Computed example of a mutant assay.
Amino acid sequence: MALATIGNSEFDRDTAVVRRAPGVYDAHLAAGWTIAQAVNGGYLLALVGRALGDALPHPDPSSVTAHYLTASVPGPAVIRTEVVRTGRTMSTGTATLVQFTEDGTEIERLRVLAAYGDLDALPDDVRTSAKPPAIPPREHCPGPDSAPGGRASVPGGTSFAERIALRLDPATAGWAVGAPSGKGEIRGWFGLADGREPDPLSLLLTVDALPPTAFELGLSGWVPTVELTAHVRRRPAPGPLRVALTTRNLAGGFLEEDAEVWDSADRLVAQARQLARVRLTG
């Protein structure tokens, strides 16, 4: 079977937007990207990111901050964008994603502030102390089908899991067999199930696509994102991505989660931090 390509994949079709008027876009939130009946936050970020990429003069997301106001559901949505500032190398815009109830009441789901630039124009100079996460080879890392009961046993159901190619580091997958490590770390290999290669837009999905670190802390249930900021640092090379999530502090029913995304050329291509709520029962 031929692999999907950028621009011709399920991800691209499901993040498509149609410009209705200047700055206003129609979209459809696809049911396949849901977790526990709510639409995944990374998918929403990519969807809004596509609309902003059309509205702004620069092509690539650099910094995208989203506040998740209410849980999104599959179905029609409207994205409204505004160009805040346009410069020579970067532009800034805002976006809101809204849905409507049966009686026509508008509900705002997501509010975004983003800076866009041109990743291909960045200098090659890199000075970093960051190192790629140490993850066993993909063939030694379990996927959703390896969990007891298969994909159906993955928290949140199978819809989202069927659209990604995820293999977790066994050292951070104890939660799947009832033996969480308690360390607040999740690491794994990531890609899209249809073989589409990563690009800057799909990185917005990637930073919020792994199981939450709360699972390795021995907690279960939905972990809704309150706020997420993603930084896209480089255009990723073809091939699987390595993703590392960590949390250092769970307090008052909230935790922070830091994400690093590394490409097949051992480059740090995206980072993110989010604040999420957790259910404090095992």
Rank of each mutant, 00 (worst) to 15 (best):
G143W: 01
K131S: 11
P61R: 02
A272R: 01
F160H: 04
L119C: 04
G41H: 06
G253M: 03
R235I: 04
T65R: 04
L203K: 05
H28S: 08
W222P: 05
A38M: 13
Q37V: 14
A171F: 09
L203S: 06
D103K: 11
D14V: 00
C141M: 10
P200F: 12
D199F: 15
T225W: 14
P76L: 12
R235C: 08
R80L: 10
L3H: 14
G143H: 01
D26S: 10
D258P: 09
S146R: 01
V177P: 04
T225Y: 12
L280W: 05
G282I: 01
E260N: 04
I186W: 15
G174I: 00
A2S: 11
R248K: 07
P224A: 04
L3E: 14
L3Q: 11
G32N: 09
G104D: 06
N249P: 00
T15N: 10
R273G: 09
D194Q: 07
I35F: 04
A30Y: 14
A214C: 04
L205A: 07
L44I: 08
M1W: 10
R80Q: 11
D120W: 02
E185D: 07
D118H: 03
R127E: 14
M1L: 10
L69F: 04
R163N: 13
V177M: 10
S91C: 09
V17K: 08
L110G: 01
V78Q: 13
T5P: 09
D208T: 00
A2H: 13
P224Q: 03
L210M: 14
F215Q: 03
T65C: 08
G32H: 10
T70Q: 14
E108D: 07
L255F: 15
A173E: 10
T105M: 14
R127C: 13
A176L: 07
S9I: 03
R19E: 08
G41C: 08
R163M: 11
V78L: 14
D124M: 11
G195R: 00
I135K: 03
A46H: 13
A21R: 15
V18G: 05
I107Y: 12
V177W: 15
G156W: 03
L119H: 02
E106D: 04
P170A: 08
A2R: 07
A16E: 15
D120R: 07
G41L: 09
P238V: 05
V39K: 01
I135L: 11
R20M: 14
A115S: 13
A237I: 01
I6C: 06
C141K: 05
V278G: 04
P148M: 01
G188K: 07
P155V: 00
A193V: 03
V177F: 15
T96M: 10
W222S: 06
S220C: 09
A214W: 11
G188W: 12
R187C: 09
A51C: 09
V64T: 08
R235F: 11
L3G: 12
D60A: 05
T158S: 15
V154Q: 12
D26C: 09
L203F: 15
S153A: 15
L45S: 11
Q274C: 11
P22V: 00
T158Q: 08
A27N: 05
A214E: 05
G184Y: 04
